[in-house]
Design a protein around this nucleic acid. Structure first.
Lengths: 340, 340
DNA sequence: TCTCCGTTGCGAACCGGTTCGACGGTACAG
DNA sequence: CTGTACCGTCGAACCGGTTCGCAACGGAGA
């Protein structure tokens, strides 16, 4: 494998000159530059990443910590990963991926050994045990998901409060007066998945303000349980005319459930979900939904992270907490309630 | 950040002694070893990955090239990735992930710059344009998916021929005489997704041998097109009593399609799919299926790759091509055809 | 008591880049 | 004609590990 020493020898210059010719950090005569570039092509030279990392203390790698928890819906996580990975590449970074259950360990390994220039944490819990470690690390970190304490990191998340309000307002405006909200499993909340109750509380409050009824319930994250859950809820609240779904697995199961009950949206029931457009296309979900924008959130997180890594953000520049405003994508699954 | 020099100073020994005390590659007195270990703990020392990579030419990182093609079903790919990632971690390796469309570029970047010790290629096409690059790389490579030419790499794949035969045999034995096979989109085949026709050809041949009819067709990889495709096929072959599905999107869409037609399996139609158990659980698919074992294949690929990296496999040890034998998981969606 | 050998530790070189300081040469202004 | 500034290049040091060769030391055997 060719080194920069080989390049220098072939070009007839010193190693440092070859380095400067390639980096452009000092002025170099056109003649020498040409010779160096020719030598690079001739030898097929590529800099050794380890050596460069050692010399510059920069790896051009971003650590991505994803967790695939038993009680969450894996395909939804994939979209965040792809948003992060693709954006990183556009900005010239590679992704070191950790999927192990013990995120703290992975995080420590990556940061302490200086394998990465920065860290992206997905699926952040309210009191995420990875956060204290991240704060002590020398590398900057960006989160997708809102923790209780945002100190020392950049945070990006969907505005779940706004999403909850928007769902309720939308159906209220159409004339609905009794709604059911299906959230993620209660277990997710207990673990600290704050986005569940952020949406739920805001929806409940919005319903209260408007004087309408909202039944807030949890649903399983897996088939076939979640199908049974949906049947149970529709049985329990026969007068509800609107269904709000903050649970990907439930959304994916709903078409079958409605078929089984010989219901259709919006004729018999208005439905609003909360998932990404990509998700809707993959599973052919015909329901209007709040766009959860995983690719956009991943992209924002990486953008900000890279800004901070490359010091365009001053080291002491305050950290950001940025919420993406929810948008309702109308797929025609809501209408005025049937009058009967 | 503490370096091994700091550790050595605190322990009162030379850098080389500290290194040997930690690696155990030379005998070290118990006293010195204790002092070095104490210093490591006191300083919170972790070796710098770049420096170690430079010195040892080993990174303990495996490159993972996944492609998310427009005409394939993304959630299925995720399972292969997790199999690879989790196994790598168990063996002490981290994963450098590339999801960019241009796999050749990603591959070259990783191998030329020595960021990785080995490469895992997912979703390998028959004439995969990444293979020539991988063969020239100094790092070993393991594939999930069977290319036309397996020289220079280790190859792991499901035995799709056997899978095709197994599906046909199973339904033939139950008494079915007219079957429909729904494959991946024809576009996948054109691009070189050989597993599609490997299964299809074997199924066709198995049907021919037994003197029964098999209609081999393609289906879209996306909703809602694939639903229409399924309706079209069931319309076109009203006398078919068995449905073979080698297409994840079609499998995921089938429950809805059958509902719409007021059919149920196996009463009206026997169904056999080809997807993983994990996939079946995620999407609540009640169909018997050939287990595609993505986690197992990912695991095998990484195991062999690591063996080769660590030289337990002699450098000249012949490469392996290993097929996983398909197993039919019975979920009760097949029975003797209805007599009418 | 001398020799030999095994144990234990040290110094130096090396991996392959980057970067700082210095130096010779040329151009230009005074 | 001299002084100065700048341009282009080089040598050396450094990043933080690993590893080879050597030497000091101590114990055992002759």
């Amino acid at each position: 494998m060719a080194t920069i020493g080989d390049v220098a020898r072939v070009a007839g210059v010193s190693r440092s000159t070859a380095s400067y010719a390639l980096s452009g950090k000092r002025t170099i005569s056109a003649d020498v530059r040409r010779r160096v570039e020719a030598a690079v092509r001739e030898l097929g030279y590529t800099p050794n990443a380890g050596a460069r990392a050692l010399a510059t203390s920069q790896t051009r790698v971003i650590g991505l910590l994803a967790q695939f928890l038993e009680d969450e819906f894996a395909p939804a996580m994939l979209q965040y990963m792809l948003g992060v990975s693709n954006t990183a590449r556009e900005l010239g970074y590679d992704i070191l991926l950790a999927t192990e259950a013990d995120g703290r360990n992975a995080l420590r390994r990556m940061t302490d050994s200086r394998m990465v220039d920065g860290i992206v944490l997905l699926n952040v819990a309210e009191h995420d045990d990875r956060l204290p470690i991240l704060r002590e690390a020398p590398q900057p970190g960006a989160l997708v998901g809102l923790p209780a304490d945002c100190a020392g990191v950049d945070v990006f998340d969907l505005d779940f409060e706004d999403a909850g309000r928007l769902m309720v307002e939308h159906l209220h405006r159409l004339g609905h007066r009794e709604l059911v909200l299906v959230s993620q499993p209660e277990h997710v909340v207990e673990r600290g998945g704050a986005y569940v109750w952020r949406l739920q509380n805001a929806a409940t409050e919005a319903a209260r303000v408007r004087g309408i009824t909202l039944h807030a319930e949890f649903g399983s994250a897996h088939q076939p349980e979640v199908g049974h859950d949906l049947h149970g809820l529709l049985d329990a609240y026969p007068r509800a005319t609107g269904l709000l779904i903050n649970n990907e697995a439930a959304a994916a199961a709903l078409p079958t459930v409605l078929h089984e009950r010989e219901l259709s949206a919006p004729a018999d029931l208005s439905v609003v979900g909360r998932y990404s457009d990509e998700f809707a296309r993959t599973f052919s979900l015909p329901y209007s939904s709040i766009e959860s924008a995983p690719d956009r959130l991943g992209r924002m997180a990486v953008r900000e992270l890279v800004r901070r890594i490359e010091g365009q953000a001053g080291a002491d520049e305050p950290h950001v907490v940025r919420f993406v405003s929810p948008e309702l994508i109308d797929r025609g699954s809501t209408a005025a309630p049937r009058e009967d």
